[in-house]
Design a protein around this nucleic acid. Structure first.
Length: 196
DNA sequence: TTCCCGATTGTA
DNA sequence: ACAATCGGGAAC
């Protein structure tokens, strides 16, 4: 792994390569109430040749953003009540994305506490739908928008994650048949979604 | 048009 | 362990 890659370089990678590289990267959102910022600590890779991926069956109205160029945002609605945020990676037409599963809150804590209705900092964004709640994402309007050209943007970390601190694990919430070790998280980080 | 189920979370 | 809750996509 190479931590000298720029963000745009990372977004151009295959999702399996990009997912671990996105650990430690800062994700932020500008809201009228203020700036929210978090450090990504857990990701999962999805790609077109992957039965568990929404892109597996091709382009639809919902999944079209997954087939856009790296840096596009893909937001989907699930379980009748939750939204999850993905960062599309790779080339246009590839159908790849990285699900942001958990992050460490850095700025805008009071706004996130209000959005999540909890004071526990460890529970603000330790799950994909908790993260979107913390960020105030309540619909799929951001899906198809570009990072850094919308309210959501990424920025390089001051202290990049080193490869030895990245743990590889099975994805969560995926049927057994499609299980693959395509989840990545920062070792011993207390803001990850689960301890397995 | 009908039916099944999910890249989850909070509560019992 | 399980209900909540509804849109997407496959099947009819």
């Amino acid at each position: 792994m190479n931590n000298k890659l720029s963000l745009s370089d990372i977004l151009a990678l295959d999702s399996l390569e990009a997912a671990p590289q996105l650990l430690g990267v800062l994700i932020s959102r500008h809201l009228p109430q203020g700036l929210l910022s978090l450090r990504i600590v857990e990701t999962e890779a999805y790609h077109q040749n992957d039965p568990a991926s929404h892109s597996f069956r091709g382009i639809t109205a919902r999944t079209a953003p997954m087939f856009e160029t790296g840096g596009t945002i893909y937001v989907y609605f699930t379980y009748g009540m939750h939204y999850c945020l993905n960062i599309v990676t790779g080339q246009k037409g590839a159908g790849e994305a990285v699900l942001i599963r958990a992050a460490e809150p850095l700025a805008g804590l009071e706004i996130m506490r209000k959005n999540r209705n909890t004071d526990d900092i460890y529970k603000l964004a330790n799950g994909p739908a908790k993260l979107t709640q913390a960020l105030g994402i309540k619909d799929t309007k951001l899906s198809g928008k570009k990072l850094n050209k919308s309210s959501i943007f990424l920025s390089a970390p001051e202290n990049p994650i080193i490869a030895v601190d990245v743990v590889v694990a099975r994805r969560i919430g995926i049927s057994e048949a499609a299980q693959q070790p395509w989840r990545f998280y920062i070792k011993d980080n207390p803001f990850v979604s689960k301890l397995l």
